[in-house]
Amino acid sequence: MTSATPRPATGDRSEAVLSRLQLLVTRKLDGLLQGDYAGLLPGPGSEAGESREYRPGDDVRRMDWPVTARTTTAHVRRTVADRELETWLAVDLSASLDFGTGRWLKREVVVAAAAAITHLTVRGGNRVGAVVGTGGGTAAPAGWRRRPPVAGPGVLTRLPARSGRREAQGLLRALAGTELRPGRSDLGALVDMLNRPPRRRGVAVVISDFLAPPEQWARPLRKLRVRHDVLAIEVVDPRELELPDVGVLPVVDPETGELHEVQTADPGLRHRYAEAAAAQRAAISTALRSAGAAHLRLRTDRDWLLDMVRFVAAQRHARTRGTTR
């Protein structure tokens, strides 16, 4: 059941998970950072470099028209990656993240993903900051077990961008210690916090389960992509994709406290649930792709770090082929 009282055990567990991440992330991800300087996303940077032939997937805004005119073959201008980048994390810590049926809770995967991104970027003088969205909290009314509490508006918090490993660790501790309140944060407003005030070109990472309707956050994300390289990390639990056959299953919405009883023995219901979940995830993927964001999906029942390593390796490989999406 959801209540307004915070659960200390969750924060303690998140802190324990965070304390194990440093060695784990360093050992697995450091090997990807050998060679030329590059961040998590092999972004274009701002300094002009050499030209090469156009390949499908290249950004047409980087067409090198003089070379194209001389050679009669489409060329794009390479750019040199900036060595001092500013990376901002938009971290959704709504009550729906306090859930997990796999090896991890969703909020633990969120903190772990933030730790991996921070490790990949906070070197060479890079700065890392974050904006965090939580539910607004609620006071449970009398008889709240029968009538769900009404959640207040979401709370948005900004953690300023700073350089240095000590500051980055402080940011991660602040994320791990954030109290999850009932209610859903406004993901659109959270993303829009990265648009104001305007910042120089950098990397923006949005970490959420993206359960809010796409029309709420798609437009701010497209606006963010105009100026920054954007990575969207979607955190998913397997029970959000399909239901097991376990008979009558009591389900509590962590954001509203509303209780439902679901008859999972009904194969038709399980099939409809799986179809609806697949359609929802397809709509999320379409909205992220339309916004021009790189998309990484992490699951609570999988090795999230291995999935992230594969994603970074694929991004680096795509860079050598001339496309990063």
Rank of each mutant, 00 (worst) to 15 (best):
Ile117Ala: 11
Thr118Cys: 10
Thr118Phe: 05
Thr118Lys: 02
His119Ala: 06
Thr121Cys: 12
Val122Trp: 04
Val122Ser: 02
Arg123Leu: 08
Arg123Asp: 13
Arg123Gly: 01
Gly124Leu: 09
Gly125Lys: 01
Gly125Pro: 07
Gly125Phe: 13
Ala130Asp: 00
Ala130Tyr: 02
Val132Ile: 11
Gly133Met: 07
Thr134Arg: 10
Thr134Ser: 06
Gly135Cys: 05
Gly136Glu: 05
Gly136Met: 08
Thr138Met: 13
Ala139Gln: 15
Ala139Arg: 13
Ala140Leu: 10
Ala140Cys: 13
Gly143Trp: 04
Gly143Ala: 09
Arg146Ile: 12
Arg147Val: 14
Arg147Leu: 13
Pro149Thr: 11
Ala151Trp: 02
Ala151Pro: 05
Gly152Pro: 03
Pro153Tyr: 02
Thr157Trp: 04
Thr157Glu: 12
Pro160His: 13
Pro160Phe: 14
Arg162Met: 11
Arg162Thr: 04
Gly164Glu: 00
Arg165Leu: 14
Arg165Cys: 12
Arg166Pro: 06
Glu167Gln: 11
Glu167Phe: 08
Ala168Gly: 12
Ala168Lys: 08
Ala168Leu: 04
Gly170Asn: 09
Gly170Trp: 05
Leu172Cys: 07
Leu172Tyr: 10
Leu172Pro: 07
Leu175Val: 00
Leu175Pro: 05
Ala176Gln: 03
Ala176Arg: 04
Gly177Ile: 09
Thr178His: 01
Glu179Val: 15
Glu179Leu: 13
Glu179Met: 11
Leu180Cys: 10
Leu180Phe: 07
Leu180Val: 04
Arg181Phe: 01
Arg181Ala: 02
Arg181Glu: 08
Pro182Leu: 12
Gly183Pro: 08
Arg184Gln: 13
Ser185Arg: 04
Asp186His: 05
Leu187Gln: 06
Gly188Tyr: 02
Leu190Asp: 06
Val191Ala: 03
Asp192Met: 03
Met193Pro: 02
Met193Phe: 07
Leu194Val: 05
Leu194His: 04
Leu194Ala: 00
Pro197Trp: 07
Pro197Asn: 12
Pro198Phe: 09
Arg200Glu: 08
Arg200Asp: 05
Arg201Phe: 00
Val203His: 04
Ala204Trp: 00
Val205Phe: 08
Val206Phe: 00
Val206Ile: 07
Val206Thr: 08
Ile207Arg: 03
Ser208Gly: 09
Ser208His: 02
Asp209His: 06
Ala212Met: 05
Pro213Asp: 15
Pro213Arg: 14
Pro214Trp: 09
Pro214Glu: 10
Trp217Phe: 07
Trp217Pro: 00
Ala218Cys: 09
Arg219Asn: 15
Arg219Lys: 14
Arg219Ile: 10
Arg219Cys: 13
Arg225Leu: 04
Val226Glu: 15
Val226Trp: 13
His228Leu: 03
Leu231Lys: 02
Ala232His: 03
Ala232Gly: 01
Ala232Ser: 09
Glu234Ser: 13
Val235Lys: 05
Val236Phe: 09
Asp237Thr: 02
